[in-house]
Amino acid sequence: MEKSKLTVWQFFVLTLSFLIGTSFFFTPGGLIAAAKQDAWIVPLWAGTAGILAALVWLHLSKLHAGLSIVQICIKVAGRPIGGFFALLYIFYFIQLAAFITRNLGDFMKQALMPLTPLTVFHVMFLFVTGYAVFKGIETIARSSELLFLIMAATFIFVLCLALLEWDWGRFQGIFRMDVWKTMKETSSIFGFPFMEGVIFLMLFPFVQSKKVKSSFILAYAVATILLSFSTFITIGVLGVTRASHDTYPFFVIVQEIHIGTFFEHLESTMALILLVAIFIKLSIAYYCSVLGICQLFKIKNRFWITIALILLISGLAMGYDNVVENIEFSKKYDFAYTILYSMVLPCLLLLVTWIRRIRNKRTEEPAS
């Protein structure tokens, strides 16, 4: 494994950036369409479920300290079965990277450069991200520290300007949702972004501190509050009808900010924030894909793996015809697909670990 170390702060920034990186752009519109004025409540229960899942991952990592999820699969289930589980995780990380890449392409083509082919956005961004991946997780973490502060400061500034269009009347009809029906209609938010955090089982071994648990849970709590807050702001500024019909409601908010002739056309600034957020999230998914392959097949030089994955990720990112098909697929299948990797397999690995420990104790007792 790469001999790198992450501080608690760096790990917190990586986790928080990964969870909210693209979700505050792509998630509010769908939530508002399903839950109307109560959409801001949905991230709260989804985030709570995400924290419970995070406790399972942390416990699994604690039982196998110093090992990534790929190495845990092989250790617990053996080389044949464990190797198959590890391959499933690697494919999931690659698919996640492709999904993030497609989000970038759809946004750039729909909002900024409609005449540019999607592949151009994909390959250009993947080459930049691939360089960061080749340099290692410490490089990604240090870049994220700087970019996160810039992203946060710009986001807060733009948010303050957007509040000038605030109207409490847009919340009329609050607290009227059917909870069970809403949970089924918004189940995709459990998968994106909260259950995707299972990818950090690849990065836990790099954090040389006992505070990794508190840092990880805190990042989940902050991400939950921020996503709920951004949905709340979207309702208050745009209203339910407009927000539910826009693919990128937060981008629309920024487009409509006009203060005299000085503060206007800030959408390019918001696009820059999104590119930074996507860079951090894609770098993590891309890096974990490369690291998983290197660990499974015991490859020491990750350069050619990094280059090869550029073509694979770019190709997988073209699996959807358009952004509408992408959104519909996420609504229907994202939760069911993600739950396999985030809960089913980790719980299975935990169960096998406990069974083996019980057996070892029973065999040691007669010997003593």
Results as ranks from 00 to 15, higher is better:
Pro114Cys: 05
Val128Asn: 11
Phe99Arg: 14
Phe107Val: 03
Leu115Glu: 15
Arg79Gln: 15
Gly130Ile: 06
Met124Thr: 12
Phe99Gln: 12
Ala132Ile: 04
Phe125Gln: 01
Val120Cys: 00
Leu96Ile: 00
Met124His: 06
Gln110Leu: 05
Phe85His: 13
Gly83Arg: 09
Leu112Gly: 09
Ala132Arg: 03
Pro114Ser: 06
Phe91Met: 10
Val120Gln: 00
Ala86Gly: 12
Tyr89Phe: 15
Phe121His: 08
Tyr131Gln: 08
Ala86Phe: 08
Gly78Glu: 05
Tyr92Ile: 13
Asn103Gln: 12
Lys109Gly: 03
Lys135Phe: 08
Tyr131His: 15
Tyr89Val: 13
Leu96Cys: 04
Ile100Phe: 05
Val120Leu: 00
Gly130Val: 13
Phe107Lys: 13
Val123Cys: 07
His122Trp: 01
Met113Lys: 01
Leu115Trp: 08
Gly136Ile: 06
Leu104Asp: 02
Thr119Gln: 03
Leu88Ser: 12
Ala98Ser: 14
Leu104Phe: 07
Leu112Arg: 15
Phe134Cys: 01
Phe125Tyr: 07
Thr101Trp: 10
Phe93Leu: 08
Tyr89Glu: 03
Ala97Trp: 00
Ile94Ser: 06
Phe99Leu: 15
Phe85Asn: 11
Thr116Lys: 02
Phe91Glu: 02
Pro114Val: 07
Leu112His: 13
Phe121Trp: 00
Leu115Cys: 01
Thr119Tyr: 04
Lys109Asp: 05
Phe121Cys: 02
Met113His: 08
Ala111Ser: 13
Lys135Leu: 14
Gly83Thr: 10
Arg102Pro: 02
Ala86Asn: 07
Ile137Phe: 10
Val128Cys: 15
Ile137Lys: 14
Leu115Ser: 14
Met113Cys: 02
Gly130Arg: 07
Gly105Glu: 00
Arg102Cys: 00
Gln110Tyr: 12
Leu115Gly: 08
Val128Pro: 07
Pro80Leu: 13
Lys135Arg: 15
Ile90Val: 14
Ile137Arg: 14
Gln110Thr: 08
Gln95Gly: 14
Leu118Ala: 10
Phe91Asp: 02
